[in-house]
Computed example of a mutant assay.
Amino acid sequence: MSNEQAILKVGDWIKGTLLTGELIIGYVENLDNQGSAVKAKIVTSDNKTIEGRSLPLLNRQVNKIPDTHVKNKEQIQFLIDLALETGDQEWFLELTAKLNAMRELAEGVK
């Protein structure tokens, strides 16, 4: 098991390949007790019929997508849209707070 797979936790964004070959991107909803599998919400895939579904995956099928550091308003707005699409209220609130802080900072500079 690689380091990326060993440190998966709920909420992590992952990419991987299903046993049938489809590419997926999604996030971890649950981890099994043995640490060998995850349940992931599929956000996008080359198989459009599985988008939005939750699927069980083996840890060896997926890799964690590294965290990104948001640097501008457009990136935050894109991520807010993604948070809305995935129904992640906590992430949405975090991102809108960050966006509001950027706006306040910009207004203070004027």
Score class of each variant (00 low, 15 high):
Gly16Tyr: 07
Ala37Ile: 15
Leu18Arg: 07
Val38Gln: 12
Leu99Thr: 04
Ile42Trp: 09
Gln75Glu: 11
Lys39Ala: 10
Ile65Leu: 14
Lys71Val: 02
Glu94His: 10
Asn30Leu: 09
Trp91Thr: 04
Ala37Val: 09
Gly35Pro: 06
Glu85Ile: 05
Asn47Cys: 13
Gln75His: 04
Val38Lys: 08
Glu22Tyr: 13
Asp88His: 00
Ile65Cys: 13
Glu94Asn: 10
Asp46Lys: 08
Thr86Gln: 01
Pro66Asp: 07
Glu22Gly: 10
Thr68Leu: 04
Ile80Leu: 01
Asp46Val: 15
Asn30Val: 10
Gln89Pro: 01
Gly52Glu: 07
Asn63Asp: 14
Ile42Gly: 06
Gly21Tyr: 15
Arg60Phe: 11
Lys48Leu: 14
Asp46Ile: 15
Leu99His: 08
Leu19Met: 14
Ile42Asp: 04
Ala40Pro: 09
Leu57Asn: 02
Gly52Met: 11
Pro66Cys: 06
Asp32Met: 06
Lys41Gln: 13
Leu18Tyr: 13
Gly35Leu: 06
Leu95Ala: 03
Gln75Cys: 00
Gln34Ile: 12
Ser36Ile: 10
Ile24Tyr: 07
Ser54His: 11
Val38Met: 07
Met102Asp: 12
Leu19Ala: 14
Thr86Trp: 01
Asp81Gln: 13
Thr68Gln: 04
Ile24Ala: 06
Phe78Asn: 02
Trp91Lys: 08
Arg53Val: 11
Lys48Gly: 12
Asp88Ser: 02
Ala40His: 09
Leu95Ile: 01
Asp46Tyr: 11
Trp91Val: 02
Leu82Asn: 03
Arg53Thr: 09
Leu99Gln: 05
Asp46His: 14
Gln61His: 06
Thr20Lys: 12
Pro66His: 15
Ile25Leu: 11
Thr86Glu: 01
Ala37His: 10
Leu82Phe: 00
Val70Asp: 02
Gly26Pro: 02
Ile25Lys: 13
Gln89Cys: 00
Pro56Ala: 13
Leu95Trp: 01
Thr17Glu: 15
